[in-house]
């Protein structure tokens, strides 16, 4: 966490320009005014001094000031985070549940026609660039069919709509980015689950379960219980996206979430917002792998003993 955010801190400051250069570029402002603003924010201090100050603030829980939004970083993130968490959370739940279901189904009939169809489809979805898939979806549902709105989280008239219509409006805006993320996510999880389930399905204990008179449903459960480890690990790795967002998909659907905001913050050299976003992502990364480890120990007693 510390390493990642420090790296970003240094890299951002090494990059040409700073928040003011970006913001006031081309505006007829006297150079002295810009310099004064820089000095006020301490950006003309040597980098080690800036770094020490930043670190001290972070330790005290101060995330800093967003020049781009002209608000405290904490408030900016408090606005962005729920939107990203909503979209990414829905996509993760869908990917995990459908992916595990599909992969487990395939694993028990590896090599069959149904499995081959599913394997080919997931491979194609898995290898498509996300943004291209997003563009295809836009083309189909917005341009050709005209069923769904293209971008944003709500439509322009959202605030004046009656309650029922507002819910509907939100859902309509959610569908396409959710679909783009889930199609890829389901494929990834299904591929992992298929391979572990296929291996488990060949184990002798599956035959033992049948010999005991367990119904096929129960036999599948026996195998599935031992085939969870890789899927849990993958889910743990996916967790940071809940706070980091998905850059391409958010960008294409103009979803006002963390991924989108981080990219524009980088462009605007909004130092504090970028480092805070990275700090948050790396915190969840660490948390995700810890959580995955914990869950793995719960479902598989062989892990760690």
């Amino acid at each position: 966490m510390w390493a990642a955010s420090t790296l970003v801190f240094v890299l951002l400051r090494l990059a040409p320009g700073d928040p003011y250069a970006m913001r006031f570029e081309g505006l007829p402002l006297p150079r002295a005014t810009i310099e004064a603003r820089r000095a006020q924010r301490g950006l003309d201090d040597p980098m080690p001094v800036q770094y020490a100050r930043w670190l001290g603030n972070i330790v005290r829980g101060e995330l800093g000031w967003s020049e781009q939004h002209q608000r405290p970083v904490r408030d900016v993130i408090a606005d962005l985070l729920p939107r990203t968490a909503l979209l990414m959370g829905l996509a993760l739940v869908t990917s995990l549940s459908l992916g595990m279901w599909l992969g487990a189904w395939q694993g028990t009939r590896a090599g069959s026609f149904g499995d081959q169809v599913a394997t080919t489809s997931t491979l194609v979805l898995y290898s498509l660039p996300e943004f291209w898939l997003a563009l295809l979806l836009l083309q189909l549902f917005v341009q050709t069919l005209g069923w769904l709105p293209a971008t944003g989280m709500v439509s322009a008239m959202h605030e004046i709509l009656p309650f029922g219509e507002r819910v509907r409006d939100r859902l309509e805006h959610l569908v396409l980015p959710w679909l783009a993320l889930s199609l890829v996510g389901v494929s990834v999880f299904a591929r992992f689950q298929r391979s572990s389930m296929r291996d488990a399905w060949r184990e002798p204990f599956v035959r033992t379960a049948r010999a005991k008179g367990v119904a096929e449903r129960g036999v599948r459960w026996h195998a599935w219980r031992t085939a969870l480890a890789p899927v849990i690990a993958l889910a743990g790795l996916t967790l940071p996206a809940l706070v980091g967002g998905a850059v391409f998909v958010e960008r294409i659907f103009a979803w006002p979430g963390m991924g989108n905001a981080t990219v524009s913050a980088v462009n605007a050299r909004d130092y504090d917002l970028v480092t805070a976003a990275v700090l948050l992502s790396s915190a969840v990364t660490v948390f995700g792998s810890l959580l995955a480890d914990l869950v793995q120990r719960m479902v598989d007693p062989r892990v760690g003993s």
Partner: peptide, 12 residues
């Protein structure tokens, strides 16, 4: 069965 290690489910 012959091999009681693999014939038993390892996670139950």
């Amino acid at each position: 069965f012959q091999e009681p290690m693999t014939a038993l489910n390892p996670v139950l």
